[in-house]
Nucleic acid binder design. Structure first.
Lengths: 254, 254
DNA sequence: CGTCCAGTTGACTATAGTCAAACACCGTGG
DNA sequence: CCACGGTGTTTGACTATAGTCAACTGGACG
């Protein structure tokens, strides 16, 4: 079965902020008219990144800050011996590149998993945003804090769970986040990760990931095919993996 | 050898902000007079927590927000089976409890490793701080972003390094952070973690941690005794563990 | 002097990693 | 339309790293 991932047609022109797709998502907290007006001036343009390409490279100084409008990406670091560790996944509404303007350099890289549509901001204007709209600054802290919570959970998962549980955890989590950003789309969901990606995210070998996946399939908890997963019993999968109920509250974005 | 950790004598009265010990640390970015004046109003009082006690419990709603003035703490999560995973360590100048007011609940617990002196703020006033001093809001985002970077690094360590390297990494990192918060204090440093703590931070068993420590001792990279470590060759230890050079820039605090 | 806790050690087990080969699917070009 | 190549997945056999269990040591403290 082939599932075309996200209809990122070669989009002609940048979307004006009032028609921002994020603002239309009922699961996201929408911005007030005044804020949208400000964002229009803050927005610099758009950037489209093909799947597999690098958005941001570790170490470099970056002039831009992004919010994902469409698509998935991943954040990773590379160890001395060349192995990579995926730190987290990036979904629509998430920001990319905050570390640069704050800490002076970015310690991780970001790569597109699917074609990506990014909203571009000038890092130099970040401070102006805090001054003009403290509530947006607050939202940025919110986003940073949420990222921290994801990392906390990943750390617990990698540090203390078995290979099968880890895989279940990751997939259940991604299913949830995917549905939240794109709306429920039946039980078969596009899933742009390879088993190699999963192993890089969980600190496992590809072989172990493969065996874990087939164990989860045998248990009837999920299905896996090229480019998609089947959400058979997400509640049971979450329970198996030690994930608690998803957070249903609306989330902000910038 | 016995090393008394931190001279937290039963301190009589809260320190006024102008005499805040953090502001005196040359490695920390000091606050402007106007900011100190604001913080004086923002500060609610102080809280002293004995070593081993809980500062903040997972799940609960907390009315307070803290900045560590003196002492070490650790942030951890508990897995379903009761095992704990230490997420990160908390040093003077770091904030505790930000997740509560931002995300609505705290997903981790915090425990004092040494006697702790905390500066107490009302979470309800956090938003007022963003409005009155956007630059302080910016600094809070800075702190959140820094925490994220620590977690990124830990994730790489736990996911992709061997037991010995992980232990070396953690100890080298803690030596660096300890020195930064307290000033260099010779090669023998107070170190309030047990090997059990180290194993909980690294997703290892105590036995493995013990063997790793003696391997590092045999290599002449460090020393270990009850309540202290000996920094024999920190540069070599960092290299061995895959840590890059420490960040020398001044850090903010609230 | 005895208890307690942290640390240490050895023997054995288990989980996950490595290596290597085969397979399945998809896209390409003849 | 089919052969071919590449990538991603699957499997088995073997290895290695770290975990488990259990006993013991040694210092600190009452």
């Amino acid at each position: 079965m082939i599932i075309n991932f996200m209809p990122v047609a070669p989009l002609p022109s940048p979307l004006p902020c009032p028609r921002c797709p994020l603002n239309a998502n009922p699961r996201y907290r929408s911005l007030a008219a005044k804020e949208v007006a400000f964002m229009t001036r803050f927005k610099r343009g758009e950037r489209h990144v093909p799947a597999g390409e690098t958005v941001l490279a570790e170490g470099a100084a970056h002039a831009h800050l992004y919010t994902v409008l469409e698509g998935w990406a991943l954040r990773y670091k590379t160890a001395e011996d060349g192995q990579r560790q995926i730190l987290n996944f990036v979904f629509p509404g998430d920001m990319i590149g905050l570390q640069g303007p704050l800490l002076g350099k970015t310690d991780h890289s970001v790569e597109a998993l699917t074609p990506l549509r990014l909203c571009v901001f000038d890092t130099a204007k970040l401070w102006a945003l805090y001054q003009a709209f403290p509530e947006l600054g607050f939202d940025i802290t919110w986003l940073a804090s949420r990222e921290e919570r994801f990392l906390d959970a990943n750390l617990l998962s990698i540090g203390r769970r078995s290979a099968v549980q880890r895989v279940g955890y990751l997939i259940a989590d991604l299913i949830e986040r995917s549905r939240r950003s794109a709306g429920d789309a039946g039980s078969i969901l596009p899933f742009p990760l390879t088993q190699q990606d999963v192993s890089d995210a969980l600190g496992l070998s590809v072989v172990s990931v493969n065996r874990a996946i087939r164990r989860l399939k045998a248990l009837g908890l999920m299905g896996w095919g090229r480019g998609h997963v089947e959400a058979l019993d997400v509640a049971a999968l979450r329970r198996f993996a030690g994930l608690d109920g998803p957070d249903e509250r609306k989330r902000p974005f910038i």
